[in-house]
Design a protein around this nucleic acid. Sequence first.
DNA 1: AAGTGGTCTAGACCACTAG
DNA 2: TAGTGGTCTAGACCACTTC
Lengths: 255, 255
Amino acid sequence: MPATARRAAAPALAPGRPLYEEVRAHLTEGIAAGRWKAGEAIPSESWLAGHFGVAIGTLRKAVDSLVAQGALVRRQGKGTFVTSHDGRRLMFHFFHIVGEDGSRAYPEVRAVSFARVRADAAESHALAIPPDERVVRVRNVLSLAGRPVIVDDITLPAALFPGLTERIFTARDNTIYHLYQSRYGINVLRTDERLRATLATGVTASLLGVTAGAPLLEIRRVALTFRDRPVELRVSRVNTAAHVYHNTFGKGEAI
Amino acid sequence: MPATARRAAAPALAPGRPLYEEVRAHLTEGIAAGRWKAGEAIPSESWLAGHFGVAIGTLRKAVDSLVAQGALVRRQGKGTFVTSHDGRRLMFHFFHIVGEDGSRAYPEVRAVSFARVRADAAESHALAIPPDERVVRVRNVLSLAGRPVIVDDITLPAALFPGLTERIFTARDNTIYHLYQSRYGINVLRTDERLRATLATGVTASLLGVTAGAPLLEIRRVALTFRDRPVELRVSRVNTAAHVYHNTFGKGEAI
DNA sequence: AAGTGGTCTAGACCACTAG
DNA sequence: TAGTGGTCTAGACCACTTC
């Protein structure tokens, strides 16, 4: 049977672009809309193939791209699941500060401040929201091995996080991105980071226990969800005396 | 015909792991050994499928992974080519310094020094070579928009770059990675980078035209080829007054 | 045993490039 | 027009998980 005959099947798959892209778009929409929540399984591949009226290979190609993107996770014999940020594993996908020797540790987070304010120019630009839009500003200090290493200034569009309170934010027993996901249905898929070197001043210096004028690594990160919509701005200042920002390019697994 | 019957075909494909991984290993070996050089086309998919005695779909899966890894590039209607670092495009795969507004520019490179010495402890460790092994040390200053922004200290294992002279190194009309590839058959596939903030001192400060004590971004990069073999250590010191290190996580193309 | 994802086959037809 | 990669089908069987 020619491919075109299938196109009229079940959930209308518009022409013009490859079938698997259409299928992928439908799956993406289902995840973004919360039809399948974080940690839940999506229907089986054979069921989805029948549902969309495509061959199993085509369905798999669509799922493959979502797996590569990090939105889905496959588990042989069990099913395909919406990526959840709860495990400790995924955390290092977006946390890149490691010891000088490359050792990884989970930071302890201490909340310093929490405020509802109006976005300043930089925030509204980074978050693609109107000037003076309501935002939540949070400041955390992250410690590694008992010593303060990072000061995080987090800005969230209030409209995306209704009812967020300081208690909710600090009482979480998991990562911050898991909170966004479990309570507000926001899946962080990508981050955009810009790094520069700065000098420690005033409050930041004292929070990190360094002298004014000490070099700090400043990371300006925008977290994005589906359709590259920004959901969080985070400015981190890192004392890199005993830690480094680690990063590899070229996904290539060792061959 | 059952898959197992094919396993005995042409270039012996050992069992135990998926067929496409075997095929991929054979292709990788061919590229690493220089059987197909940078910029050249490998045989067509149908020819390779027949050669290895696998279905076209299986062959494509092997090629897919090498394309994802960056070792091969597909061009519809023309063929599949060994990735070449000559084009200006690929350069930004490994060069991450951009203007504050995200604008990209090609740096002008000025050679400052070139010397053949013995590896120090840090270099021998980073390059996985014996202590006191012979290495080539090069210092470059990179300028953007006519102003010096980066000081690069490059260390190469002399054994991998026989006959390398200052003239060869500075006379190249292309990127440094293209030189490694075209003259020494070394394909840089991955980089491992560690970043920290430091303070400008002495020579570095004067090369960059900043005062001692100015904050600099230090990037310690190890370039890797097939089998994750290190081929270059590069320590960059960047004046981030008007530039930033830019990076995105989560390959996800905008959906 | 039943259900899931993982691998593999053997084709067909489409889209693009080049002579 | 011939050759290349790109998409898609309709199965088969394997590996893993759960009951």
